[in-house]
């Protein structure tokens, strides 16, 4: 005998209808609490080293707003599309959910592409690497950790979408989609801070 995970129309929120779903939901929030400390530590490290360029390129030399602005738009939009996806999940509309999550994944990939371009640009055109100065180490570590989170999130999402493409929505996989969406918002929020602290502040000071 196995648990019944099939959807029925009375279920308001398939993500939190099961005990396991609730656990995942609360567990993810706790996890994000820990992630906040992780990024706070990285931000603190970055802030204390951002002027330690050791004669190499500084933030004013490197950063350009246009590129970062496009990246920001891409990631913010992807957060929005994941909200649509979850909206459709709550309406038990699996196809539309997959569609919107698909768009989310594409936007995320776009963001990642620009980030890779940005890093190669700094390395080839400025010789600004992970090893050039403490500022370099701190910059690539902070932004790279965020990028790593994006990679992880995208792999997670794509795996979910492929795995469940033919199975449709159930109480078993709905919490997985939902936790992904919250995680994705978190990544987005972290980016907003990176945009402000690293890029905006880096261009002014």
């Amino acid at each position: 005998m196995s648990q019944d995970f099939s959807l029925n129309p009375e279920i308001q929120d398939p993500a939190k209808a099961t005990h396991e779903g609730k656990n995942k939901y609360i567990g993810l929030w706790f996890f994000l609490g820990g992630e906040t400390v992780l990024f706070a530590s990285l931000f603190a490290t970055y802030l204390s080293l951002r002027n330690s360029t050791a004669g190499g390129p500084s933030s004013q030399d490197l950063f350009g707003l246009e590129l970062v602005f496009v990246m920001t738009i891409l990631l913010l939009t992807s957060s929005l599309t994941s909200v649509y996806a979850i909206y459709h999940m709550k309406n038990h509309d699996f196809k539309k959910m997959q569609l919107w999550f698909g768009i989310t994944a594409l936007l995320g990939l776009g963001f990642l592409g620009f980030e890779i371009y940005e890093f190669t640009h700094y390395i080839t055109d400025y010789g600004f690497t992970f090893r050039s100065s403490a500022f370099g180490s701190a910059f690539y570590t902070l932004v790279g950790f965020h990028g790593g989170h994006v990679v992880f999130g995208l792999s997670w999402l794509i795996a979910l979408m492929v795995r469940n493409a033919k199975r449709g929505l159930s109480l078993y996989n709905a919490p997985k989609y939902n936790t992904f969406a919250i995680y994705w918002h978190f990544i987005d929020v972290v980016w907003v801070f990176i945009f402000t602290v690293v890029y905006l502040m880096g261009m002014v000071s």
Partner: peptide, 27 residues
């Protein structure tokens, strides 16, 4: 997580040549 970050910095310095604690490069 704060310790995780500290360990990463140490790991990067020791294994991948970053400069978090390298005074000569501004660490």
């Amino acid at each position: 997580p704060a310790f995780t970050v500290a360990l990463f910095l140490l790991q990067f310095d020791r294994m991948f040549g970053s400069a978090f604690f390298d005074i000569a490069l501004g660490g």
